[in-house]
């Protein structure tokens, strides 16, 4: 898998086609690590717990995708949303410097999809990334958070780490990356994609801040090269 990835140095900025080809070649484990490295609690989680949480999140997303397919049949996320008590609201944008917001799910049932980044990405006219395809990927991701909010036995809600304790009080917390990884996997499986839905992260960022997108791209390639994102390296 790694052999397929471009071996450019940091100084060489790829064109968008090469960037997409490289990103599509990245394995699931690299994207999981990419998400985990952004978690606010990453410094408090050791390698073993990290591997356990990632594996559990992958299983959680996969299981839900299979169950959803069984329950609702093979229908796109947009149709699934129509069958559920969800409100989908298009919003303009919520872009803050190096943070680009694609969508927000707020309990109990509100999904906001930010149009500005989608408009910018569709304007690039990239094959496979038209408005409908992008929307399906985003909706499926947010659908996971909806299903997650309905069931407190979801792995992403039950798996916790202990942050500190005082006497008998143990302060535990869920790890947000677990939920995000499971949502990514759910969208990946539900849409039957051959690449990670998180490619949208880099592409959207590219539309606003090519430098920052390039940094993320390099970070992903470095993860792939280092083997941190290689499933075998966790074993």
């Amino acid at each position: 898998m790694l052999a397929q990835i471009s071996t450019k140095t940091d100084d060489q900025k790829p064109n968008i086609a090469v960037l997409i080809a490289d990103l599509k070649a990245l394995p699931e484990s690299v994207w999981c690590d990419y998400l985990f490295n952004r978690d606010l609690l990453v410094a408090r989680i050791g390698p073993e717990k990290r591997a356990e949480l990632i594996a559990g999140a992958i299983k959680c997303g996969t299981d839900l995708a299979q169950e959803t397919a069984r329950s609702y049949g093979s229908i796109p996320a947009s149709e699934l949303v129509d069958q559920l008590p969800l409100q989908v609201k298009p919003e303009d944008s919520q872009t803050i410097q190096k943070q680009v917001f694609l969508a927000t799910f707020t309990e109990p049932n509100e999904i906001k999809i930010y149009q500005e980044p989608i408009n910018k990405l569709t304007a690039l006219k990239l094959p496979g990334f038209d408005r409908a395809a992008i929307t399906e990927i985003i909706l499926a991701h947010e659908l996971f958070h909806y299903f997650e909010s309905q069931d407190d036995q979801f792995y992403s809600r039950t798996s916790q780490i202990e942050l500190w304790h005082l006497g008998r009080y143990h302060h535990r917390s869920t790890v947000r990356a677990t939920s995000e990884i499971a949502a990514m996997i759910f969208s990946w499986r539900l849409n039957d994609l051959s690449f990670s839905p998180l490619i949208l992260d880099i592409l959207m960022l590219y539309c606003y801040n090519p430098e920052a997108a390039h940094d993320c791209y390099q970070e992903l390639l470095a993860l792939a090269r280092s083997g941190q994102g290689d499933p075998e390296s966790d074993q």
Partner: peptide, 11 residues
């Protein structure tokens, strides 16, 4: 709430 926000900086 869950935001799908692209953060270019790792923690």
């Amino acid at each position: 709430s869950h935001n799908w926000a692209i953060d270019s900086q790792p923690a």
